[in-house]
């Protein structure tokens, strides 16, 4: 088991290297550069800036320099926010994004699984059809539509109600206490809730019709035991392997959601960085995002082996 984990962790290194190399190539070959917006500057000053950030050197040399610093844990200076290093920017914004992302993921798992199980147990009932219609919409409607609608309803309409408006209404922008977080968390979790609900329903229905669940019922076990002990653990396995893609979805979603709700998270820096060709900032963020997704996938695989005795890896 230990050797297996070690092997999986070692594979992360070449994977990450390929991701960095490709991203590097992609962003450096995009038209424009970090100092285009400052056209008013003297060409000499721009040339100096390019020298400071090594942009005047050939690409392979720049890549070498970048990797060299990366080895020491240094993501380099930001080219747009010139008073800060990328490490500093991420240090300030990452906790906010992690906070938001984890809460959304947790909400998505709890709510998604509950909805899926309820729909499967009441299969083909009105409840089932209703829940599945809502979750189909949740998948189909993009978050940049849902988020403004949430804002409109909770942030504006509810606030207008005389007397209780100040309690019911929610802040629609900025970072702060839990009340600030509710709308972004919901907006971020919504599509994942919908996907997880549909996955859970399908897998629960399949397990409920399996031979061993029939056998458990034929032994006279109460329905509660049949579902909790025999059906649920097997039905939730596919959900665990969906956690990797779910995290990727939440990260992608956060780029838009943080922008809409004006949250000082990584997602917003990512958008700003990409638009202004802040090479180091974008690369740093890609590195953090991909490491997170890869690590979660690793954890999921190990967890999966622990939960399903048939795929457990023994040495």
């Amino acid at each position: 088991m230990f050797a297996y984990c070690l092997r999986r962790i070692l594979i992360l290194i070449p994977t990450l290297f390929i991701i960095i190399a490709l991203s590097f190539l992609l962003i450096y070959s995009a038209p424009g550069g970090p100092f285009d917006a400052e056209a008013a500057l003297d060409p000499q000053i721009i040339e100096n800036l390019r020298q400071t950030y090594n942009l005047d050197k050939p690409l392979h040399q720049q890549f070498g320099l970048y990797l060299g610093r990366l080895m020491q844990g240094d993501l380099g200076p930001s080219m747009i926010y010139r008073d800060f290093t990328v490490n500093e920017l991420l240090g300030a914004s990452l906790p906010i994004s992690i906070n938001l992302g984890l809460k959304s993921l947790l909400l998505a798992i709890l709510l998604g699984c509950s909805i899926g199980i309820a729909a499967a147990l009441k299969r083909n009932s009105k409840l089932d059809y209703g829940l599945m219609f809502v979750s189909m919409s949740g998948i189909a409607v993009p978050s940049f539509v849902v988020a403004p609608l949430l804002t409109l309803f909770f942030g504006i309409y509810l606030k207008e109600i005389p007397g209780v408006g100040s309690y019911l209404g929610l802040p629609v922008a900025g970072w702060g206490g839990l009340r600030n977080q509710i709308l972004p968390i919901i907006a971020l979790a919504l599509p994942q809730i919908a996907i997880i609900a549909r996955l859970t329903r399908a897998s629960m229905i399949e397990v409920l019709s399996s031979n061993y669940v029939r056998a458990a019922r034929m032994r006279g076990l109460p329905e509660r035991n049949v579902i909790l002990n025999h059906a649920l653990p097997a039905a939730l396995l596919p959900i665990i392997s969906y956690l990797g893609p779910a995290l990727a979805g939440v990260i992608t979603g956060s780029v838009i959601i943080e922008q809409i709700f004006d949250l000082p998270g990584v997602g917003r820096y990512f958008v700003q960085g990409a638009m202004n060709r802040d090479y180091t900032l974008v690369l740093g963020i890609i590195l953090v995002f991909s490491t997170t997704v890869l690590l979660l996938n690793l954890i999921v695989d190990i967890l999966y082996g622990y939960l399903d005795p048939r795929v457990r890896v023994d040495e």
Binding site: S210, N211, Y212, V213, A215, A216, R219, G220, L221, N225, N229, H230, P233, A234, L307, D308, P309, R310
Partner: peptide
């Protein structure tokens, strides 16, 4: 396929 794959034999016999 009549035995629940994620349960140990002992548990499967015990519950009844």
């Amino acid at each position: 396929t009549a035995l629940t794959p994620h349960m140990r034999i002992g548990e499967l016999l015990m519950e009844g």
